[in-house]
Computed example of a mutant assay.
Amino acid sequence: MGRVYGPNDFEEPGEFCSALAIGDSWFWYPNNNILQTLVRHQHTSGDHANIRRVGYNGALLQDYIGSGRYAKEVRHWLSPNFNDGFSEFYISGAGNDAVDYKLALKPNCTGITTPSACIDQAGMDELLRKVSEALGALIHNIRWAYRNDSLTRPIFIHGYDYPTPDNRGAGFASGPWLAPAMDAKFVAQDMALRFGIMKILIDRLNDEVFSQFDSDDNEIYHIDSRGTLKHFPDNHKTDWTNELHPTSAGFRKIFERHWLPVLAEHGIAK
């Protein structure tokens, strides 16, 4: 079993981190997350079971580039003195960007009964543009760090599954995130309508942003997790701890169905 190291943790004697993970709460959620599932899983190769993690809960993709609040940490680990040991990269982001951008909803959804009609199309386009721009810049910075190296290191982009906006928070002074954003825009208390809005958002992030970077030639891989976990109208609480984060079993389900096959192709898992 490996370990997830924080940005300021020292590696244990004899250990090294093969991956740099840059991401939000799906990489940081307490007790369990995608990275913890990866390093603990019996099929993860021992040579790839230690990960260096930067970012934080609530981080935006923009936080990792330019003058963003975690950009300095990213630059530190991509600098020549520290980047030599990384053979792969993991990126998770855009969920908090969407929440920060009020889910790209119209200012007032009163009386609206269809999910697409509640979306501010210009706002959605701007959200997707900003996410794509930040993700592209982050990928560029990773590739730039190894521009003189003949080895192309794979980059894995994590896509989200469909959350149900049921107004459940994390229980440690965090969240809920989705239901309050909808309440602020006067979205009707209709879970079918509210889930439909989230489905549109997740589909557009995956289809119009993440998948556009997917390229075998460039060794960039979009890990598409949609449709894995239960969601409205099913009993989604068996797979989701709250509005945004899966249970431990939910994270494992996503990892085994979607991450493992891709990682196995690169010798990261067996």
Rank of each mutant, 00 (worst) to 15 (best):
V209C: 13
L105P: 05
G136P: 08
P107N: 11
R129T: 10
T152C: 06
A184F: 07
R147I: 09
A117L: 11
H140R: 13
V131K: 02
Y90S: 00
A104E: 06
Q121N: 08
P115Y: 11
I112H: 03
I197R: 07
A137G: 00
S87E: 08
I142V: 15
Y101F: 12
I202D: 01
D149V: 11
A170W: 02
E208Q: 14
I119R: 05
S211R: 05
G171S: 09
G136R: 11
P163D: 07
T152P: 03
Y90E: 00
A98C: 07
L103R: 06
L178F: 09
Q189M: 02
D97I: 04
I91R: 04
A122W: 01
I112Y: 12
T110S: 12
G175C: 02
T114N: 12
L205D: 10
V131R: 04
A188S: 14
N167D: 15
D216V: 05
A181M: 08
K102L: 06
G93W: 05
I155H: 02
E88F: 15
Q121E: 14
F89M: 06
N141Q: 15
D166N: 12
N96T: 10
L128F: 07
I157F: 08
V209E: 13
A94Y: 06
R129K: 14
E133Q: 15
G136C: 10
D120A: 11
C109T: 03
F172T: 00
F213H: 15
L205Y: 08
K130W: 05
P154M: 03
I202P: 00
R153I: 03
A170Y: 04
I220C: 13
L205I: 15
M182G: 10
Y162N: 08
S116L: 09
G169D: 07
G196N: 10
P163Q: 12
Q121L: 09
S174K: 08
I142P: 03
A134E: 12
I142C: 09
G111I: 01
P107W: 03
F213S: 07
P163A: 11
F210N: 14
T152V: 07
D149N: 15
S215A: 11
Y101K: 13
V99T: 06
A134P: 01
N148W: 03
A98K: 00
P115S: 11
H158K: 00
L193D: 08
I202E: 02
H158L: 07
